[in-house]
Amino acid sequence: MKRRGFLVGAAALTVLSGVGPAEAQYTPSRPIDLVVHSGPGAGPDAFGRALIAAIEAEKISPVRIQINHKIGGGGATAASYIIEKKGDTNTIGLFTSAWIANPLVQADMKATVKEMTPVVRLVIEPAVFAVRADSPYKSMQEIVDAAKKDPTKIKQSGGSPLARDAIVRHVLMSNTGARWAFVSFPTGSERIAALLGGHVDMMIIEPSEAGELIRGGQMRALAQVSDKRLSTFPNTPTLREAGFNVPNVPQARGFVAPPDTPREVIAFYEQLFEKLVKSPTWQKYLTDNQFEDAFLKSEETGKFFDQYSDLMRGILTGAGIRVVR
């Protein structure tokens, strides 16, 4: 959606003094379209807006950046839009792990990140295993043991079978031999409500969502789904530290450009986001939301796509989900 009219004042053009030396031959002349796959208010949209706010506050883009919603298809609409935009240097797409995972099982999703030009990877979202504050389970091991004893006892609330929480469950179940139920809810609110109401026993939740509920004495974290401990949960072990030898399933966000975007255009975006990542505004945003800074340039981002696809393909096949790509 292009925003004009009474919003022009708010999104004032921020003009930059010189993008940088030698390498950056390319400078966009029109506003940049930032394609997100969710409607206003949902995760990717909120992330995109925060990012634009930070770029504007730091005045590091020569042109205005605007959100363009391509809603639908679990990311498929946005992804195929990016493919269609081949040759357009003013359009970039905000990818999430769903852009990589969903086409693996959906035959109809023909637009894959493999065809697009990787730009950067920005963040990894960690997560924690949480239980209700009055839960009898004090550690991940206790829950897994209880589940081993009685497979109908433990229930986990989560999202779709391709979402990270379901994937981590599969990884843990095949690693430990335990079994527990998984109850799917479309929104985070419903997953949390099911936990707080005592209808399920645990869930995997983003630290930004869990933080306040833990501080308010409603929830407790048992383990972290990340490579190293987060600053906000210094006393909660990671899954590996808790004794589970499982691969970490990262939930990443970053940008892709249309297919065959020229190198100098990619260089421009790399520099733009590199400046953003180093800025204090962005660093504060990351700390506030407990995102892990995971900046990768174009080439490494492409490698990350391959690694992640392979990891997911293996896990999904192991979970009995049919992989089509």
Binding site: M1, K2, R3, R4, G5, F6, L7
Partner: peptide, 8 residues
């Protein structure tokens, strides 16, 4: 719509 209200 597009001019005054910004509805595409």
């Amino acid at each position: 719509f597009p001019l005054a209200l910004d509805v595409p």
